[in-house]
Amino acid sequence: MNVVGQTAEHLPSRGVGAGPPAIELRDLHKTFGSVNAVRGVDLRIDAGQVVAFLGPNGAGKTSTIDMVLGLSEPTSGSVSVYGLSPRDAVRKGLVSAVMQTGGLVKDFTVAETVRYVAHLFASSQPAQEVMERAGIDAIGDRLVGKCSGGEQQRLRFAIALLPDPDLLLLDEPTQGMDVEGRRSFWAAIRHDADQGRTVVFATHYLEEADAYADRVVLIRKGEIVADGTAAQVKALASGRTVRATLPDADEASLSAIGGVDSVEVRGDSVVVHCSDSDAVARHLLTRTDACDLEIAALGLEEAFIALTGDGGADNLSEGRFR
């Protein structure tokens, strides 16, 4: 399966269709002194996709997001946002972001903060409306310094909604929010994505990537190591596990099926780790007396660790993902 490096055209695109991609990165490099934070990233994100950007700390996610926002200049390579330079896209309110490091002014109230930013755009959504959408309309008069971490995060989200951006970048957007806050946050994001907004988010809540992203891009040591739907990425790293009840299983014939990594016999049951679960299932159901068949994908978390951990490169070099 060739997922790495693909532009994922097969993914759902609810966007405006034709027109420049929301984000286009070409051979992007960023060097800080002797550290190569981003090493040759090529990525095209079409309008209307919801894309999760995953990677361990220091993988280059934030460096890449900074370049998309025009907060830093690439060392080499190019960035375009809806065909424009990042700064022009920001000035037109095409792109906005909820950043981990986005500071707030403690002695403004919540409503003042929203009004302040609303005045900066050529055309802005009404302050009251974005506050309602972010769930902070009831605390408009509260000083920002007196807000909880979750409330401040909602305020950042409200600010990001003001220009009605075509592209929304979210760096750890739900950090500090409680479960209910996270749920309503994603409901709002999903709603906007259905209207054609492109959303790119970095998160360490892998279940969020799994549940809400059309497409998952895994980045490790400044390079993209996997790119596809959550299901594809999971399959990439860990394959699937086929479990069945089969007395006297023939280990050798199971191992001979293409794509099988290992076969374990545990009493009357057999567990097969493989990349092609369909072939194994077909074999078990048609050639043996196996029953109680279960096929399980390992979690995105295992995929994440396998692909981004220190063994990630070795896994790739085995050719399993090509």
């Binding site: 405006v16 000035r91 309110g93 055309s123 075509d166 209207q195 054609g196």
Partner: peptide
Amino acid sequence: MTSAVARPKPSDRGVPPFGGFSLQLV
């Protein structure tokens, strides 16, 4: 597809005058 609720074209968006300076900010 709900994309029929067309978003304004990116090219229709404007840039604020005076680099964003306004008396409301003051």
